[in-house]
């Protein structure tokens, strides 16, 4: 690959960052953001069901099924559980170690990445992530269920916010910072598309009963899943309309979880990481990011709805994946690898 031919350089030590370290910072940040978003999604949907207890079994199955499908975890789920009810789905997505995307797995993975670069992050960041890890590790699943899942979700969200705030106030604005931010915003953009995708069927052109009580509540739930309910009200001072809600979550220029906002940040940090300064982009990753950003700048909500919200979101997810992979490729000199069993054994023999 091209970067292998780069001439060796000597720079002041402080600004040099190992590729492996950059990679770990990126994943640490993504996993924390992923855990937080999953916690919010599950919490909101549980509450939603409490408000609307009229759902029959089929309705429930559909409800949770669409959440699983949006996370692309439905196939794995079916190999482990029979029924997609509240308990099973929540358990699977929050505490099941067999699900690599469960909140538990995300926190463990974030902590493992943080441990590998323990020397690079501040003591405050490490303590926060380690504390959360110890809390989860020290408890039985049944114990967490008995305490109530809300408190659990609260804990996850609070720790994620604490972690991000501490990162903001204790981490130097170096290349490492750029990787952390890039990871956070790419994950957040992806999760925002998935939160929206859960309810895409309500926005199908032939959907009837738009504006009914259930519908409004569903859109409230979507907005709350993205922490966007209050921001929406402040912006529109209006009752909740499905297309307005979708428009807000996709196109808001000011709300920090909107797709547009996240993609803007992704592009910004990506350009800093890849040293892209000119108007014409040099790297494939930067060109892909620019294309995505231009789409979001030039499209209107009608275009999106005409094309089909679901199709639109799937395409965005694909290009986010592509951008993430490209950046990793460009800044890494070898593929990401977890230690093989042989490596682990030798590390222990030392």
């Amino acid at each position: 690959m091209a970067q292998n031919e780069k001439q060796p350089i000597s720079r002041p030590q402080a600004t040099v960052m190992l590729s492996r370290v950059a990679h770990s910072l990126y994943w640490m940040s993504r996993y924390i953001e992923r855990a937080e978003n999953t916690a919010r999604l599950l919490e909101v949907n549980q509450q939603f069901l409490l408000d609307f207890q009229g759902f029959d079994d089929t309705g429930l199955k559909e409800h949770w099924g669409s959440i699983l499908a949006s996370a692309e975890d439905d196939v794995l789920f079916k190999t482990i559980y029979d029924v997609a009810d509240s308990h099973n789905v929540t358990d699977f997505m929050s505490l099941d170690p067999r699900n690599p995307n469960s909140i538990l797995s995300c926190i463990f993975a974030a902590r493992e990445n943080a441990r590998m670069i323990r020397d690079q992050i501040s003591i405050e960041m490490w303590e926060t992530i380690n504390e959360l890890y110890l809390f989860l590790k020290g408890r039985e699943r049944s114990e967490i269920w008995a305490r109530g899942p809300y408190e659990f979700f609260e804990d996850i969200k609070r720790h994620s916010h604490l972690f991000q705030g501490l990162t903001e106030s204790t981490f130097s604005r170096t290349e490492g910072w750029e990787f952390i931010q890039f990871g956070k915003f790419i994950e957040r953009a992806d999760k925002t598309t998935r939160i929206l995708d859960v309810k895409y069927h309500i926005l199908l052109p032939d959907a009837s009963d738009v504006g009914g009580a259930v519908d409004t509540a569903q859109w409230q739930a979507v907005l709350r899943s993205a922490s966007a309910l209050e921001a929406y009200h402040r912006f529109y001072v209006h009752e909740i309309l499905p297309w307005k809600a979708a428009e807000f979550i996709i196109f808001s220029e000011t709300f920090p979880r909107s797709l547009y906002y996240c993609v803007t940040r992704v592009d910004e940090f990506l350009c800093r990481i890849l040293a892209e300064t000119g108007p014409r982009r040099r790297t494939a990753a930067a060109r892909a990011s620019k294309r995505l950003l231009s789409d979001l700048q030039s499209l209107a909500i009608d275009d999106v709805l005409n094309k089909g919200l679901h199709e639109f979101l799937v395409e965005i997810q694909k290009s986010l994946d592509h951008i993430g992979d490209e950046v990793v490729e460009t800044t890494m000199f070898y593929k990401a690898e977890i230690s093989s069993e042989e490596q682990q054994q030798q590390q222990q023999q030392q």
Binding site: P8, I9, V16, M17, L18, S19, R20, I273, T331, F333
Partner: peptide
């Protein structure tokens, strides 16, 4: 920096570490 063996590479009897900006001696 803390490095693992896989972060280092030897070229013409010099040791380099693999960084995001290229090889650094």
């Amino acid at each position: 920096p803390i490095v693992e063996g896989r972060d280092l590479i030897v070229k013409s009897s010099k040791v380099y570490m693999r960084t995001t900006a290229g090889l650094v001696q």
